[in-house]
């Protein structure tokens, strides 16, 4: 039997099974979305494939009843961990009225839910970074011990808001986790043409906080690093920048052909190291997962996804004139 690594970092067998289930749920959901897109059912997909381990490992280290999540557009694994259902996200991808993220107003991958403390995101990247500092500042002023967790890609680490947000949080020692998923590409531009520094994590030193680089294909390593940062933040030790290295298995989005800028062989090579498969193997090797349990998990995920797809497909769009709603607070009179 393989060495059990998860117990050493405080995770039970049930915890890692749940993590596995969420990773698989995210992957299966994403694959379904591509089918729906290619068959003309949904207009757009922006993928989480290859990054599920980083997303699920990180978000499991947070307090899902207290902490704030500021995801970016690939974070299906995170929003599922924070309580969103596949039905919620499917309604979003179908842009239906019942979409709890935006009521069909936003492009796929633009998550948001006050109920789950998932802060609504936009498309200009990195704007959520200063928001996380603001939430952490507010919580600190109010004496709450919550953590603001903000996620983004390595391309975002070149934006002004990254540097302004980290500096602000560093100066005020705010409880923020800055979590970068370095998937090696900003659409088509490779890492070597994005960063002059060795790594994104290296940038932390300029903002007076620890910068940690972690293997983002291993959910247990990610969990351990994020957990340490969360504990530090909660006890008043300030922010941390974490860089989780991973790989984007698909094109940037359903509108991108990645063969124009990267070698398909590279993708095949990376896919052969699929974090999801490796975690499954680990769980088998340490006796947590059996063929029977695995089949049950897959079956329940599939069933849930089929229901979500059918529901979202049949659900109505918002009435066209509902486009006029919620520009301003209703009590002050709508326009």
């Amino acid at each position: 039997m393989k060495n059990n690594r998860h117990q050493a970092i405080g995770l039970s067998d049930n915890d890692v099974l749940q993590m596995y289930r969420t990773m698989l749920q995210a992957r299966t959901f994403d694959e379904r979305c591509w089918l729906l897109n290619r068959s003309g059912k949904i207009p757009f997909v922006v993928s989480c494939q290859g990054q599920e381990a980083a997303q699920v490992g990180a978000s499991y280290a947070l307090d899902r009843n207290k902490d704030y999540l500021l995801p970016y557009y690939r974070d299906v694994g995170m929003v599922l961990t924070f309580g969103m259902t596949t039905k919620d996200i499917m309604l979003h991808n179908f842009a239906k009225a019942e979409d709890p993220n935006s009521g069909g107003r936003q492009l796929a991958g633009h998550f948001g839910s006050r109920k789950h403390r998932i802060v609504s995101g936009s498309s200009p990247v990195t704007t959520q970074v200063p928001h996380a500092a603001g939430i952490a500042l507010a919580a600190k002023m109010e004496g709450e011990d919550l953590v603001a967790f903000v996620s983004f890609g390595e391309g975002s680490s070149n934006q002004g808001d990254f540097h302004e947000g980290l500096n602000f949080a560093g100066v005020h020692r705010l409880p923020v986790i800055f979590f970068c998923q370095n998937n090696k590409y900003a659409i088509s531009v490779p890492l070597s043409k994005q960063l002059a520094s060795e790594s994104v994590a290296d940038r932390a030193v300029g903002y007076g906080m620890p910068g940690k680089k972690v293997d983002g294909t291993d959910p247990l390593e990610v969990y351990a690093v994020v957990k340490e940062a969360v504990d530090r933040a909660r006890s008043g030790g300030g922010p941390t920048l974490i860089e989780a290295t991973c790989y984007r298995f698909t094109g940037h989005s359903s509108d991108d052909d990645d063969k124009t800028y990267r070698d398909p062989e590279e993708v095949v090579r990376e896919r052969s190291q699929d974090p999801l498969e490796r975690f499954r193997t680990y769980l088998f090797d340490c006796g947590v997962l059996t063929e029977e349990t695995d089949a049950e998990i897959k079956h329940s995920i599939r069933e849930e996804l089929d229901e979500a797809t059918e529901y979202a497909d049949k659900a109505p769009f918002a009435a066209p004139e509902d486009a006029l709603k919620y520009v301003y607070a209703q009590t002050e009179g709508e326009r």
């Binding site: 200063p130 603001g134 939430i135 500042l137 302004e164 947000g165 100066v171």
Partner: peptide
């Protein structure tokens, strides 16, 4: 803390204010 000197950083001033307002404060 309620008369907060910030770094020279206009986007952070606005962005942090957005975050604090999302939490329920009135920056």
């Amino acid at each position: 803390s309620r008369a907060l000197d910030t770094p020279l950083s206009e986007s952070a001033i606005a962005g942090v204010a957005v975050g604090a307002s999302l939490y329920g404060l009135r920056p």
